[in-house]
């Protein structure tokens, strides 16, 4: 009897994994057919990092129209600078409707610069724990990110929404202009899952054929 139990258990886990993988494959592959713009407004979740990452993503945001609304910004809880910069940006940007709402959400940072690998695993799981309820509540059409470690747990939560069939969350990743020859760690992970993956140097596009190269963006 115990043998049968283990056997059935094993088969169940195997089938569950297979279903999960197939769903993941379908969700990632079908991104290009997803057109949230058809219904009018696009709900945007923006992952702002610290320092240079925030500068770059705000430069990109500056050219987006007010059709990208509402906008949810997610910043790391240890980040003091970004919130002020986002508020200043939202106030000053004339392309985006000032009446349209934006909100700022804080999340545990998944990885500090120079943090060891072992503690990174723990803090990333911690960030994952906060990301899932946040994404399930906000249900954005698009997650826009450019490299801070915080974006991986948020993108994973977005994928999960798609896998469960609740909503397809498009993942848009823009690799930092600093990356000329090699992708960042976040970039290497999200290359496989992002629906739109931008690089800013031609040498990177040559190494990563699925990436989109439109020249320098920031």
């Amino acid at each position: 009897m115990p043998v049968m139990f283990v056997l059935f258990g094993g088969v169940f886990v195997f089938v569950a994994c297979m279903v999960f993988m197939i769903r993941l494959y379908i969700v990632v592959r079908n991104g290009k057919y997803c057109k949230p713009g058809n219904k009018g407004l696009i709900t945007l979740l923006v992952v702002a990092g610290s320092g240079g990452h925030t500068t770059e993503i705000l430069r990109l945001m500056k050219t987006l129209s007010s059709a990208y609304s509402p906008r949810f910004y997610v910043i790391a809880d240890t980040d003091r600078m970004s919130e002020e910069r986002i508020r200043t940006f939202e106030k000053s940007n004339h392309l985006l409707d000032s009446d349209t709402q934006f909100t700022i959400h804080r999340i545990a940072r998944s990885r500090e610069v120079h943090q060891s690998w072992a503690s990174s695993v723990f803090s990333t799981l911690n960030a994952q724990f906060y990301s899932i309820p946040l994404i399930f509540r906000l249900r954005p059409d698009v997650v826009l990110c450019n490299g801070p470690g915080t974006c991986v747990p948020l993108c994973v939560a977005g994928l999960l929404l798609g896998i469960l069939g609740i909503k397809k969350v498009l993942i848009v990743f823009i690799e930092s202009i600093c990356r000329v020859e090699s992708l960042s760690l976040t970039g290497r992970i999200l290359y496989h899952f992002a629906d739109y993956f931008f690089v800013q140097w031609v040498s990177l596009r040559n190494n990563y054929p699925k990436s989109i190269f439109l020249g320098r963006l920031v």
């Binding site: 050219t63 823009i174 739109y196 320098r216 963006l217």
Partner: peptide, 20 residues
Amino acid sequence: FVPGQPKKFANFMDKALGLQ
């Protein structure tokens, strides 16, 4: 040095996401 062109990104996304 020619500055980067974020507008290209916005145009690409508008088209890809089906905005009119």
